[in-house]
């Protein structure tokens, strides 16, 4: 459904952030994109959704295909119209609008206005807490409620592909579970394909059908969650697991070398 082929992104004409990034998101699946800070995960999403331009970023090489058509030269508004919706990092709800107005803003590109009302109810069904707070100013909602609103707002656009940028950011572990189970439900019930960017590798691997790990602007590892969970590097660097009871060995000392191999 979505394919990135050797995408290169440069900020301010000099800073090379994505260095030949390739990735594929099949229809109806949840794909996770993992990586440490500064790996280029958010840049990847912005390259897809057309939000690089306001930040002086540019796709300089490679191509981004959505349903077989090139989309990396489209304006952000047209990308949304094609059916790709990005839920930005840090929730970014419209603080001075109330909950329902935020949802209406999410439906901005819809041409079937008569169904908007009905879709607001669908969102309330997924997030009953938003219904209780429908007339409240979004800026005063709790972090978890704001994340729910951000996802609900994305649902209002009825996207084919929803891209979530760190939905777990700053949320309590229980709430993270709740939100991820709803993401799963949305994927199954609405048939929405999901591309998920996460720092929290554990929960992302639980929910995803397939995962990519990126370092320094390109993909370094791919596989199904089960495979990745067994990978020694992933266990150590992303899941924080260590071989329990083993003595500090030559392997531990060579950490940095393994990491370096990824980076090069």
């Amino acid at each position: 459904m979505l394919a990135l082929n050797n995408v290169e992104v440069i900020y301010n004409d000099v800073i090379l952030v994505l260095k030949g990034m390739s990735l594929e998101v099949p229809q109806g699946k949840i794909v996770a994109l993992l990586g440490s800070n500064g790996a280029g995960k958010s840049t990847t999403l912005k390259a897809i959704s057309g939000l690089l331009k306001p930040e002086d970023g540019e796709v300089t090489d490679g191509e981004i295909l959505f349903e077989g058509e090139k989309i990396h030269e489209l304006e952000a508004a047209n990308v949304v119209r094609r059916g790709i919706f990005q839920v930005m990092e840090g929730r970014r709800v419209f603080e001075h609008l109330d909950v329902e107005q935020n949802l209406i803003a999410g439906s901005y590109t819809r041409s079937d206005r008569q169904n908007v009302r009905q879709d607001i109810d669908v969102v309330y069904e997924y997030f009953p807490r938003l219904k209780e707070r429908r007339r409240q100013t979004a800026g005063y909602l709790s972090g978890g409620e704001q994340q729910m609103l951000a996802i609900g707002r994305a649902l209002m656009a009825r996207p084919k592909l929803m891209m979530l940028d760190e939905p777990s950011l700053g949320l309590a572990p229980l709430l993270v579970r709740e939100i991820f189970s709803i993401i799963r439900r949305i994927n199954q019930e609405q048939g929405t394909t999901i591309l998920l960017v996460e720092q929290n590798a554990r929960i992302a691997l639980d929910v995803a059908d397939y995962a990519y790990i990126m370092e320094n602007g390109r993909i370094v590892l791919t596989g199904e969650p089960a495979q990745l969970r067994d990978n020694a590097d992933v266990r150590e660097f992303y899941l924080g697991l260590n071989e329990v009871g083993t003595r500090k060995s030559y392997r531990d000392v060579k950490h940095y070398k393994r990491r370096k191999r990824w980076l090069s």
Partner: peptide, 23 residues
Amino acid sequence: SREGIAMRATADDQQAALSMGIS
């Protein structure tokens, strides 16, 4: 109105408004 709400949304957070497909 949708246009009016979009205007206030743009004032609140331009980039987020762009990501909604608001021109």
